[in-house]
Nucleic acid binder design. Structure first.
Lengths: 282, 282
DNA sequence: GCAGTATTGAATAATTTATTCCGCCTTGGC
DNA sequence: GCCAAGGCGGAATAAATTATTCAATACTGC
């Protein structure tokens, strides 16, 4: 399941041959079962060695490894589909269908997060945030929503989390950071000019940078000390945007919960619940 | 699935070595993924050639064929099991455990949405938003994140979606609404004083109100024309907050996708993708 | 006890997969 | 425009995995 999403998400940054391979696999995932690397190469019109290199580039040990992963994806998809439609062989209302589709896509996207993100990266990121008191978060547009979310979480943990929607002010805020601070940059594409400015600025000052982008090589993740990724790659543009955002949020939430676990925060919890009570009083 | 049953069914008529192989496979089906025929032979204490012969005797072309079949069985079983009950008491890294727990909770929370929300309410809400051009969204604190999210979505659909984090300004914005406008109020508790003010104001002006709150009777949902609910109720306070927020967002996203479907929006899609390109240019 | 048959594993062949190496092309600097 | 650096793809080759052969042994029915 995840495997195919991963491939789809990396389509953009593939060479021609790699892309042909990817397309073939996506279109004929179910056929792969009976293909050797040589056969696949022939089917696509390339060399066997290229097939193997393709597999390795995607992070698999070799061809059999990819094959197994694709097979798993095929099986999982068909099993889930079966158990879903099994519930109601009848036609469902459009809303139900839509909701189930959304939940299914979401489920697969989120499941992929642990596969494309090294556990070490997650641990490093949470270490990083645990040790610092001051975090500047930056993200614009859709990623701005994620940024707000994360700001809220970090504030709850007692961290000074800075964020501003104005890029100029964000840069001003950056000038208040020191080496013990952390810069968290959130961007779908990883190419946003304002964020790159912030990254350059932080690099000069030796401020640690965590990036959170789509899963593909991009300027931002290259500039970051710790790069986190969200899966992307659904065909439906609008749905894809939703899913990427939710995957980003999900990663933030994972970091948040990790921090909760590691930070003895009983007093903080009381504090913030008191605060909430205050806020919500009628 | 069939594969393991087949093996089990033939247990009786097997020779000693074959039986050892069969037992091992049945007990360690999940391990087979990473075993070569030689490794399996070693693990069982036999020769590699016997392994191959065993496979062929069972009707498979050879070892890889059996391996694939066993793998399928394992996947199918685990997929079905996971969707049924979520118990896997294996030793995992803390991160993996945390993530799986989170995803499981999320999954169940989201699945509940269709149960606590009338389909009619969802349809009404989307009708309501479809027909209007001007929406004032209000939500503070954590719900503010959801509000921002929804604002972004509605703007993408070409709706004038207003939102301000300052309650006073929000009220000012409300004074620009007319009977064709919609007020969308988002609150966890449904008791926030500022939102209630907005609701009273809108009632007087006969502006339609959609509320999005936790699933319990509350002042806000009573004041609303259409009340939508997010499940709440996890024991862990912090996790619960996350889940409620995500459920709220999920509801918003459902509305958004419904609107996408119903609104012929090809030109809008182009527009907004052009916009995004502009924004993300380096 | 003996012929016939089945089972096993060592050796080997065949196949599949992984790596190396080389030529080609692109890219970026001068 | 030229050259160096680096990535890409494929042919050749190495390594590994898998399949077959064959001989030894054990077992079965007579």
């Amino acid at each position: 399941m995840v495997c195919l999403l991963k491939i789809r998400g990396m389509l953009e940054q593939m060479s021609i041959i790699e892309r042909k391979l990817a397309d073939f696999i996506l279109d004929n995932a179910h056929l792969l079962r009976d293909y050797s690397s040589q056969q696949l190469a022939d089917a696509v019109g390339t060399s066997q060695s290229s097939v193997v290199k393709f597999c390795q580039k995607l992070g698999y040990k070799g061809y059999p490894d990819l094959k197994l992963a694709v097979n798993e994806a095929v099986i999982t998809a068909s099993t889930l589909q079966r158990s879903d439609s099994h519930e109601q062989g009848q036609q469902q209302s459009d809303i139900k269908t839509l909701v189930e589709q959304l939940q299914f896509s979401l489920h697969s996207h989120l499941r992929g997060i642990l596969e494309i993100n090294d556990e070490k990266a997650l641990r490093d990121a949470s270490d990083c945030l645990l040790q610092t008191d001051k975090v500047l978060i930056a993200g614009f547009g859709q990623s701005g929503i994620v940024a707000h979310d994360m700001q809220f979480r970090l504030l709850q943990l007692g961290k000074l989390a800075l964020l501003h929607t104005d890029p100029a002010i964000a840069l001003q805020l950056a000038s208040t950071l020191d080496q013990h601070s952390v810069l968290l940059l959130i961007s779908e594409s990883g190419q946003n000019a304002d964020l790159l400015k912030l990254a350059r600025f932080a690099r000069q000052r030796q401020i640690r940078i965590i990036s959170l982008t789509s899963f593909k090589t991009n300027a931002l993740s290259l500039a970051a000390d710790i790069a986190l990724y969200a899966l992307s790659g659904d065909e439906n543009v609008r749905l894809n945007a939703l899913l990427v955002q939710l995957a980003q949020q999900h990663l933030c939430h994972i970091l948040y919960l990790l921090l909760c676990q590691r930070q003895n925060n009983d007093h903080l919890l009381e504090e913030s619940s008191k605060l909430l009570d205050l806020l919500e009083q009628q």
